[in-house]
Simulated scan of single mutants.
Amino acid sequence: MARIGIKICGISDRASLDAAIGAGADHIGLVFFAKSPRNVGIEQAAALAHHAAGRAKIVGLFVDPDGDFLGQIRQSVHLDVIQLHGKESPARVAQVMAAQGLPVWKAIGVRKSADLDAARDYQGVARILFDAKPPEGADLPGGTGLRIDWSLMAGYRHSIPWILAGGLDPRNVGEAIQATGADFVDVSSGVESAPGVKDAARIAAFCEAARAAG
Rank of each mutant, 00 (worst) to 15 (best):
E136I: 09
G167T: 02
A118Q: 03
D66H: 13
R92I: 08
I6Y: 04
V63G: 11
L61R: 07
V96F: 03
K35Y: 13
D64N: 15
G71E: 15
S89Q: 05
I108A: 12
Y156L: 11
I11V: 12
A201L: 12
S193T: 11
G5R: 02
A176S: 10
P134R: 08
S193A: 14
P161T: 10
D183N: 01
Q100H: 09
G214A: 00
I163L: 03
P65W: 13
A53E: 05
D13Y: 06
A210E: 05
G71N: 15
D80N: 13
P195I: 08
M97Y: 02
G101K: 06
G5E: 00
G22R: 09
R55H: 15
R157A: 12
L164R: 02
V104A: 03
D115W: 11
A99Y: 15
L79I: 11
V40P: 00
P37D: 12
A200P: 04
F206P: 07
A165I: 15
I11S: 01
H50Q: 13
A138K: 00
A213K: 05
D68R: 15
I58G: 07
E43N: 05
V191W: 13
D26V: 08
V81M: 02
L164D: 04
L70V: 06
V59Y: 03
A126H: 07
R92H: 10
V59M: 01
A126N: 09
L129H: 02
R127H: 11
H158R: 14
S188M: 12
A154L: 06
K57I: 02
D131V: 13
A52S: 11
L152N: 13
A23I: 04
V191A: 10
V197Q: 09
A205R: 15
V81D: 01
P135F: 05
G5Y: 06
D139I: 12
A200Y: 02
S151Q: 15
D18K: 02
A182M: 12
M1G: 01
I82N: 00
T180F: 15
F184D: 05
A91N: 07
A114L: 03
G196I: 14
K35E: 07
K112A: 11
H50D: 07
P134A: 14
D115L: 05
I6V: 14
P65E: 15
I108Q: 07
G22C: 08
P195Y: 13
Q100R: 05
D199P: 09
F184C: 07
D199E: 10
R38N: 14
E208K: 10
